[in-house]
Write a protein that binds this DNA or RNA. Structure first.
Lengths: 216, 216, 216, 216
DNA sequence: AATGAATGAGGGTTCATTCAT
DNA sequence: CATGAATGAACCCTCATTCAT
């Protein structure tokens, strides 16, 4: 019985490993080339498997990408949840969120999402109920909203700025990489420092000015 | 001779008109569907001409899009130059720039650029010397840099924030529309008000804090 | 204007010729190999055109075959109508129908239909309203029913046999060729004579026996 | 030794049982969907075994189907032999044959054959010596020929109709089901009654008319 | 022997590009 | 020049067959 068990789980383990390899390769190529320039052939080639094999794991190119996105969003969600639950001020929470978004694996996620989000077919996948991508995205947004509104309550953020505008500004930070090539002409930049400053701009931008409010 | 001349320029005028029509149609569809979902057939159909005719004006789909981008950047460049040359404070200049970018025809341009910028082929076109897209983009950036550095000189903007970071934050505002569907769940927003607040966030984000006001 | 006209009709004529060539090639191969063994590549190759060209005339393989069937049914319908309208006894009408069905181009039609009718996808096409295949088939059946019932009225055919059974027996004659290879072991048979005898069997099979009609 | 023997025959028995299950499943699906719409995956799934296992029993899809056909023909042959050997008049024999063909399991066989007979690959299998399908089919035909010719000898059937034509008419009865959907527009029909009438048409069609009985 | 993941040839379809009219 | 039919490379996907476990 146990042998059977271990036999089965070996198979299952290999299967999942292979699936991860496919997702990884797909992610790489999608980041390099975008959805339409990525062919199933190339993904298969990069993994070193036959094209048909991909279809044992994902029923279509769209579903493969949907799985990739789902996987990334879920990971993001977990991390965001951790931040939200932590004992920190709203500013610190945002700070930490931005830090993760810009530095760690996050920026890749942001680019992935935004690089994929163009395709019309893919938008359809987004909206389709079954993947729950939209729902997860909504949850992710809700967490951010919570932080921002908490910040307004405790007087950290400007109440005269709508939460929506803050959200926009916040998420816009994620799409930046897109312009790198143009803005920087190719030369690499110390992201760490760049992100620090962007965070500063954003946080100061939404922070409540403590001026001598008595005057006002 | 003159007849010939006028004949030719009539021809030439018609030709250019047609070219404009093609560019206009291409722009519309590209904004709706993105690069890959836009087919030459559809562009031709929308203009009301034969597919082959497009190839009399543009040697390839890539070149057509490159022309479209060039045209948009040039227009942007002209407007930016006007702003730069105007007698305004750096803050006011940025303000006006943002206003144009978010409200007027600019936002369309931003979306166009960002919607197209995904494709690898297109990136290649960007880099190719002959279109001068990169050069114009550089010029456009330089103008912005000028404003920002002028702002630092005159004490309006934070000197501790690198101009590069400011640039990033500035251009990030252009990519926002992308997330509309997800962030807003479809409901329309008064863009005018939204943009006003975003501008506020950005400008306050980079504005020099008057703290050591005793000195000043 | 006339030049334009002739120009257009030339194009149109060529287009229709090409379409006929495609239909003809498709018909040949379908008869040889059946629906599934017939590839668009092969059809194109037989016509001597590129595969893509077929798709300028027919939006899909299914539609191509549907067009082929429609075309054949319509032709059959026209001929059947002529027979029905002729001044003949019901027996003679059936006779002529069978003669056409078995000898002329008809048998090819019968085989085509029956060779195609297997595919599940194709059945779907049959049922779809837009081609009107089912409707035409129904009309064709109705004509036959008319003849059979007229025959019963005038005392030529057995009233104790349901029209439906007669219809079955009638149409079954069309599917025969299918067994040729097996029944005949490959050797060719004088179809003319064979059909004459089959007609005899069928007609005698449904003919009213004149037996002691006085009693009845 | 005997243990070994019995061990082996147990194995062998299980093997044959499994083979029967595969054939049964294949038959079902083939009848539902036809040769090309039937996948090895689906057959395996219906049996509840792995796809590879099928290949331990049959070297290919073609061979599986060939085995199925062989099995059906052999069964038919046995039943036909019984009828031929029975003490009945030729008419009665035909009658019984038709009855079996239309009602019992036979009609399924007829449909199976005709549904499969389309594919080119399968035709090839038919012709290949090794399965002996053609030979058995020939034998089956020969039995029918015997009955028909016996009927002619004893004056039951028309001598002026070639045996071959009778054969055609006889076998054509088997392919009818094909047109059901079209001929009946979906409504179910009491097959028993339908078959009775078809048998009547056929038998009366080939029966010798007793008219000039005075001469004889 | 049984399994089922892997294979890869082959099919239908699309679409940027070409070219005869 | 304008036209739009023709082209054919490339794509996504299927499925009979193989083979390591």
């Amino acid at each position: 019985m146990q042998t059977m068990q271990s036999h089965c789980s070996l198979r299952e383990k290999q299967r999942q490993e292979r699936e991860q390899l496919i997702l990884k390769a797909a992610e790489e190529i999608l980041l390099e080339k975008g959805y339409y320039e990525t062919s199933m052939d190339e993904i298969a080639a990069r993994v070193g498997i036959a094209k048909g094999t991909i279809y044992h794991h994902f029923p279509s190119k769209e579903e493969l990408v949907a799985a990739l996105i789902t996987w990334n969003i879920e990971a993001a969600l977990r991390e965001v949840e951790a931040v939200v639950a932590a004992d920190l001020t709203p500013s610190e929470k945002l700070d930490r969120l931005i830090e993760h978004v810009f530095t760690g694996i996050y920026s890749k996620r942001a680019r992935l999402l935004s690089s994929i989000y163009n395709g019309v077919d893919i938008k359809r996948v987004f909206q389709e109920k079954e993947h729950g991508i939209k729902e997860k995205m909504d949850t992710l947004c809700r967490y951010t909203v919570e932080i921002l509104e908490e910040g307004k309550r405790v007087g950290e953020f400007e109440t005269s700025i709508s939460t929506q505008a803050m959200m926009y500004a916040f998420f816009s930070l994620f799409s930046i990489r897109r312009y790198d090539a143009i803005l920087l002409g190719g030369k690499e930049v110390p992201h760490r420092e760049l992100f620090r400053q962007l965070r500063h701009i954003f946080l100061q931008g939404i922070t409540r000015k403590q001026e001598p409010s008595d005057k006002e």
